[in-house]
């Protein structure tokens, strides 16, 4: 009996500290929007330094919740928190990378990018006012596309999501009816559609459900060969989601460190700007003095070495001046 007890105590003790012991782990959670790039960066960082970045893609809402509850070392959210909220929760915030949200469809036999929509038409589809693919509004915009009389299934997020926040912020900007009926946020009351968990879940459902339309970060569309739409931007041009059109949107952004970089990039004015772009943000708890410098070190490493990886996944790395602004911000917070 006694030997068993000692054995149990010993095992418990060992596992509390970890046998592998040495490996340091940074725990982060939040947005699924940048998950492909964070996990790729983390993988390379681990190879370079041995430090592990455990990033769990649970949704931006989750990132905010878990950093407020201090259950992770850093949170990630595509929806920037307002400066007041940051002060209240004693948090810091900085952007990490820029990307685009793209509407994707599952229409057998139709080429990616073949269909164009105006912001108004997109809004009507999501409000449930346009219910069939051969609706005359869509037909008029796409006279050459063989659209069938099939019912549209909207696929959207079921979890608290920054992708949703970027998407609904855009819709609220361009569509008064959306603003009035639904509004913008990480989770909204959707008029129609089925909910998938994370960008992963939406991509999965769009793949499985024919005649569906959903919205995902572009990397998910690209990795899974989902068919995207062209959209009309603020300058009145129909643009394709691409590195260039995201970059064009990013160019218009003026991030202000004194506001903790709070900024939306949706409906950007650039001539070729993709209208649903956004930065994704990292949230740190001010009192986590021990882990914060380590998190910052990781992102500093990513700023220096991660641009190619980001581009490969069609994210836009922060422009050099913005990176320096972020570094200055870190310094001012005493974590760099």
């Amino acid at each position: 009996m006694k030997t068993i007890l000692t054995l149990v105590a010993a095992i418990t003790l060992i596992f509390s500290f970890g046998i592998a012991g040495a490996a340091e782990t940074l725990n982060g959670a939040g947005a699924s929007f940048p998950y492909p790039v964070y996990s790729a960066w983390g993988y390379e960082y681990n190879k370079a330094t041995g430090i592990r970045l455990n990033y769990q893609s649970i949704g931006s809402g989750g990132g905010v919740r878990q950093i407020i509850n201090r259950t992770v070392d850093f949170g990630a959210s595509d929806a920037p928190l307002k400066p007041e909220k940051l002060e209240k929760e004693n948090l810091m915030q900085f952007p990490a990378v820029i990307g685009g949200v793209v509407p994707v469809v599952n229409l057998p036999g139709i080429e990616p990018g073949a269909i164009k929509l105006t912001s108004n038409a997109l809004c009507k589809v999501l409000l449930g006012d346009i219910t069939y693919w051969d609706n005359k509004i869509i037909k008029k915009l796409n006279p050459d596309v063989p659209l069938k009389h099939k019912k549209i299934t909207v696929v959207r997020r079921s979890d608290g999501s920054g992708t949703t926040a970027i998407f609904t912020t855009y819709l609220s900007q361009v569509c008064p009816e959306w603003k009035e009926k639904v509004g913008a946020g990480k989770a909204v009351k959707w008029p129609v559609g089925i909910g998938g968990k994370g960008n992963e879940g939406v991509a999965n459902y769009v793949q499985k459900v024919k005649n569906s339309i959903g919205y995902v970060e572009f990397a998910y569309a690209k990795q899974n060969k989902l068919s995207y739409l062209r959209l009309e931007n603020a300058a009145g041009n129909f643009v394709k989601p691409s590195f260039e059109s995201f970059q064009d949107a990013a160019a218009s952004g003026d991030f202000d460190p004194s506001k903790h970089f709070y900024l939306w990039l949706t409906n950007a004015p650039g001539k070729n700007a993709w209208p649903i772009s956004g930065a994704t943000f990292i949230l740190l708890a001010k009192e986590k003095k021990e882990s914060n410098p380590k998190v910052v070190k990781f992102f500093d490493w990513a700023f220096k070495n991660g641009d190619d990886t980001a581009k490969r996944l069609v994210y836009v790395p922060l422009p050099e001046p913005l990176k320096n602004k972020v570094r200055k911000y870190w310094k001012s917070q005493g974590i760099y």
Binding site: S16, G18, A20, T25, N204
Partner: peptide, 30 residues
């Protein structure tokens, strides 16, 4: 226990499990 993308035997940390991984992976698009 949440999830962990790395090998870890430290019970004080988030730790991966097969069932949660199945949920994540099956719901994913890849």
């Amino acid at each position: 226990s949440f999830n962990n993308s790395y090998f870890s035997t430290n019970m004080n940390e988030p730790i991966a499990s097969l069932t949660v991984s199945i949920f994540q992976y099956a719901m994913g698009p890849y």
